[in-house]
Nucleic acid binder design. Structure first.
Lengths: 240, 240
DNA sequence: CCAGCATTTATTGTAGACAATATGTATTTT
DNA sequence: AAAATACATATTGTCTACAATAAATGCTGG
């Protein structure tokens, strides 16, 4: 009989995190305690502990007497995200370049290998999770308990936004994914070299790439159809 | 019989938060589930939920099969705190000036009244909690779910550090407390006027004041006693 | 007398049953 | 017919009792 190192409860936490990040559990969705407890083979009290913990981490929101909800994405989400992300990412990466240990760098390299593999396989969820893990490790390198909470929160929604706006049919994306993967290699090089300034600048550039990708969905190009009709008629729908 | 609006569990959470912030529960101290459950008149399962939540908020740390520990302060704590605090405080205050609602401003003013009262009363714990609450409200004004987690974490330790290094016998402190209270009034004025740049600058200045106070303990002035004896003799004990 | 191991004790982790609250529906009244 | 209220149902919240794990103590052997 194979001894399972992780407990059922730990597996439950990790699986729920994964499902939220990949939007297998959609933002705003309500969760049924009994159903989840049955799914993971534990009873409701420990499951409720799990939900409280996930609430603390920002994966879910708890409503008194009304259960747990997957953290919703509101109309303010993207705006708030854009305001804070570059600051936190830059600060984290700078500190990572200053404090990273050899062991952490090895783990980052291994993570990058898996990330490139996921890109090659065309697995959107694995790619998103790999990216999340990559930046999580950089967060650990920064080794600052005051920065980590906001970074974690940002990474949750960054991952979910990526999943939401993912579109495999748009060809320019394959190209952008390559750029992103190359930037990850640069992260590793700069962190290993301890070049804090350059690492922070790269973090901003990496962020800008991601932001451009997101914005191309939020404010898409107008449909390029010449106006051939009288005004006041339908068919003039531009970018919203 | 007076109807209590808050549940026992909510009171438990709020009281534990308060005790951690005021160091009535000392950093690193281990907590006994049974004892706490008895104290607050609830059973262990809901208490364990409370501890998980407090762990998510950064008040305590959970160790598997070994219980909950009040979040410890290590040798890295102060350094990490100094690195991140000005950035987060400035960003939060800037956003608060941009987004504060009239209702929030009213609450901030009320909080400031209580804060000044606590100073007048010479109640160190109430003053520290009042200060925490003041900056919490500014955090709410910023209305950014990605910034709040780090702000909360910072405020916990900022409050605890203030309590640790508080010394009522040093007269220059009364003066510094007055300056801090005056700065709070300026926060209110600038936020109400929507002056984001000035508010952010004030946040940095407010932080510098606090930092100077903390540093005067960490690296105290040497005791100014002329050397009048031969070396190697007792009586040369410096500041510890 | 010290070291290692077994046993005991205290504390954490979990389960199942019960209580309380909220929602949805049906009925009744205006 | 519409609205409000009362009831039924489903879901959350809690408690007591039990199981499992880790620390502490005492015992035995070297």
């Amino acid at each position: 009989m194979e001894t399972e190192t992780r407990s059922k409860k730990t597996r439950c936490i990790e699986d729920l995190r994964r499902k939220v990040l990949t939007e297998a559990l959609e933002p705003g969705m309500y969760l049924d305690e009994t159903e989840l407890a049955d799914t993971y083979g534990i009873s409701r009290p420990p499951l409720r502990e799990v939900l409280r913990q996930l609430a603390g981490e920002g994966y879910v929101v708890l409503h008194e007497n009304r259960g747990a909800q997957v953290a919703p994405m509101t109309h303010k989400t993207l705006r708030n995200f854009f305001v804070v992300a570059p600051m936190i990412y830059a600060a984290t990466t700078r500190l990572a370049a200053e404090h990273a240990t050899p062991d952490q760098i090895a783990r980052l390299k291994e993570c990058q290998r898996a990330f490139r593999q996921a890109i090659k396989n065309g697995d959107a969820a694995e790619r998103a999770l790999g990216n999340e893990r990559f930046h999580s490790i950089i967060g650990e390198m920064a080794d600052n308990e005051y920065l980590m909470p906001s970074l974690r929160r940002l990474l949750i929604d960054h991952t979910r936004i990526s999943m939401t706006f993912y579109n495999p049919r748009k060809p320019s994306f394959a190209e952008q994914r390559e750029i992103a993967a190359d930037q990850h290699d640069q992260f590793i090089a700069l962190i290993e070299a301890g070049e804090a300034d350059a690492a922070a600048a790269l973090a901003v550039a990496h962020w800008e790439l991601s932001r451009a990708q997101i914005e191309s969905f939020v404010t898409p190009e107008g449909i390029n159809i010449p106006l051939g009709r009288a005004p006041g008629v339908a068919g003039t729908r531009g970018a919203s």
